[in-house]
Simulated scan of single mutants.
Amino acid sequence: MIIAIVNQHSSPERTVVARNLAVLRAQSGRRVCLMTTAGNGDSDWSEERSDAGVQPWIETHQVGSRAVKTRLAALRPLFDDILIDAGTRDTDGCRCVLAESRLVVVPVRGGALELDLQYRLLARLHGARTFNPAMRVLFVAVSGGGGPDVSERAAVLAHVARVDDATLADTVLHAPAARDYGPGRCVSDAITCDPDAAAELRALYDEVYPPPAPLAFAVQAQMRHQGL
């Protein structure tokens, strides 16, 4: 499953969401790759994680805009899940990522919306639907300690409404980038240090990767048992 994390402003929440979803998915036993087209240092983060002996290890790849399609084709058979930090810019690489993604996660701060930038992102999402009509879009509200307040939530909902079939996550992230958990670590590695932030990211993970229905799970287990 390919999931893109994208926004239109240089806030750190995009990277925080990408890393934590990758860690939580790998903790469930899946083969996970974290890819970036944004040049934001995820390969360094992976090396720091390995050097510190933090488990699970996350394989990361930084990919230039023109190489995205080729690299995705090579990585798909090797991993169960690929999460892609697709950055903020409208590049060929980002468009390719959106065209290949089953779900696009958009962290957004309602109180810091720059309308011109957000409209560019909305246009990019609409354009991707032309090539990927099954693509789902999940906006995630990011707020300060007590928010979002009414005006922040209204601003986020207004943008959600401008994207066909987009939804707003029930989970609200409260300043998830506010703490440093050590080299190569993220809040999902250190749940005893910040249980509230860890619980929010776990709740978002459950919305991004909902557990299978009991009946579907039973059928899948029976098929595995029968070697189907």
Results as ranks from 00 to 15, higher is better:
Ile3Glu: 09
Ala86Arg: 07
Thr36Val: 01
Trp57Lys: 05
Leu24Asn: 01
Ala218Arg: 11
Ala26Trp: 01
Asp206Glu: 11
His9Gly: 01
Val140Ile: 12
Ala161Gly: 01
Asp85Asn: 05
Ala38Phe: 06
Gly110Val: 00
Leu21Gly: 02
Val172Thr: 15
Ser143Val: 01
Pro176Asp: 14
Arg89Phe: 12
Arg95Lys: 14
Ser11Asp: 13
His174Tyr: 00
Arg102Glu: 14
Ala203Leu: 01
Pro211Gln: 12
Leu21Tyr: 05
Glu152Arg: 04
Glu47Thr: 13
Val150His: 10
Arg109Asp: 01
Glu47His: 10
Gln222Ile: 05
Ser10Cys: 02
Phe131Gln: 14
Asp149Cys: 03
Glu114Arg: 15
Ala38Cys: 09
Arg136Glu: 15
Asn7Asp: 14
Glu114Leu: 12
Val219Pro: 06
Val104Asn: 10
Arg89Tyr: 11
Val160His: 11
Ser43Glu: 15
Leu72Phe: 15
Leu34Asn: 06
Tyr209Gln: 03
Leu21Asn: 03
Gly184Asp: 05
Leu168Gly: 06
Asp51Ala: 13
Gly146His: 08
Asp85Lys: 00
Val105Met: 06
Ala128Arg: 01
Ile2Met: 13
Pro211Lys: 03
Pro56Asn: 13
Gly93His: 06
His9Val: 15
Arg102Val: 05
Ala154Asn: 03
Ala18Phe: 04
Val105Arg: 03
Val32Tyr: 03
His61Gln: 14
Ser50Ile: 06
Val23Gly: 11
Ala213Tyr: 05
Gly182Ser: 02
Leu201Gly: 13
Ala190Arg: 12
Ile2Trp: 10
Val137Asp: 12
Gly87Cys: 09
Ala218His: 04
Thr171His: 04
Thr88Ile: 14
Cys96Gly: 08
His61Tyr: 13
Leu115Asn: 10
Asp92Ala: 14
Asn40Ala: 14
Ala155Pro: 02
Val163Ile: 07
Gly127His: 04
Thr70Asp: 13
Phe139Gln: 04
Ser50Arg: 15
Glu47Gln: 14
Ala198His: 09
Asp81Ala: 10
Arg179Tyr: 08
Ala216Thr: 10
Ala26Pro: 08
Ala216Gly: 10
Leu103Val: 13
Arg109Tyr: 03
Ala22Tyr: 11
Val16Lys: 00
Ala203Met: 00
Ala154Leu: 00
Val108Pro: 02
Gln222Arg: 11
Ala155Trp: 00
Ser50Ala: 14
Asp165Cys: 06
Val108Phe: 09
His9Ala: 15
Asn7Ala: 12
Thr167Trp: 02
Tyr209Asp: 06
Ala4Thr: 06
Ser46Ile: 02
Arg31Ala: 07
Ile58Asp: 12
Thr36Arg: 07
Ala4Asn: 11
Asp164His: 11
Leu173Pro: 10
Ala112Phe: 03
Ala74Leu: 12
Asp42Cys: 04
Ala199Arg: 15
Ala155Glu: 06
